[in-house]
Amino acid sequence: MVLLRRVIGDALRARRQGQHRTLREVSTAANVSLGYLSEIERGQKEPSSELLAAICDALGARLSELLREVSDTVALAEQLPGVLMPVQDEPAAAGPAGTVRKATGRGVRQVTTDGAVAVSVRQDSPLKATLRSSRVRPSDRDVVCAA
């Protein structure tokens, strides 16, 4: 499941880090406490529209640009089956070619492979999922993303 506050926080953090600025610098410029800005970036708090505009101004970004980026991310998530809906435990079943859904104690794990790359999704909780991709050749690195 994708939370809007999480996507907004990720977008703000990416912009701030892209500018090589600290939380303290941005929080001072936006006139918001450092702790609250940190909670916004981690997706724990939802900023008001006024606060979001102040943070964008401090980052030198337009609010519309940030919201467009957030909208594009949510639109992409909507195209992935099961991302916007909580995953329920279910018996193991075969899905589309190369996809297997396995029931686990923590949620459904979906594994997809095309022969060269394998991708698995594990629902850790209703608000957290882990995506892992790995190459079939053992010498290649795994990539893990958690949301």
Rank of each mutant, 00 (worst) to 15 (best):
Q17S: 10
V117A: 01
Q44F: 13
L80D: 00
M85L: 13
G105F: 03
R42I: 11
L51E: 05
A30Y: 04
G43D: 09
I55M: 04
P47H: 04
E69I: 06
Q19A: 15
L84A: 04
A94G: 05
E46V: 09
S120N: 02
R15Y: 00
A75T: 11
V111Y: 01
G95Q: 10
A118V: 11
G18W: 03
R106K: 12
A97V: 00
S48D: 11
E65M: 01
Q88V: 14
S38P: 07
S38H: 08
S38D: 13
L23D: 01
T113S: 15
A93P: 00
R101K: 11
R42M: 14
G18M: 12
A30M: 10
Y36W: 14
G82L: 08
G115V: 02
S49G: 11
Q79G: 10
E65H: 02
A29I: 00
A77P: 02
G95R: 06
Q88K: 14
Q17N: 08
A53I: 02
A14D: 09
R21G: 06
S38N: 15
D114N: 14
Q88A: 14
V108R: 06
D57P: 05
S38L: 02
K102E: 15
A118E: 15
S48K: 09
E50H: 10
Q19E: 14
A11C: 12
Q17R: 13
C56R: 05
A77N: 04
E41P: 11
V70N: 04
E46C: 08
D114Y: 05
I40L: 14
R16F: 00
A94I: 13
A103C: 11
T22L: 00
I40A: 12
G98N: 04
E69W: 02
L34C: 10
I8R: 06
Q110Y: 04
P91S: 10
L51Y: 02
A53Q: 12
R13P: 01
D89E: 12
V117Q: 03
V32R: 03
A118W: 01
I40W: 05
T22V: 02
S71G: 12
P47T: 07
T99E: 13
T99I: 15
L37V: 11
G9E: 08
L59I: 05
R21S: 06
E90H: 03
G98F: 01
S48C: 09
E50F: 08
L80G: 04
T73V: 10
L66R: 00
E39I: 04
Q110H: 06
R62A: 12
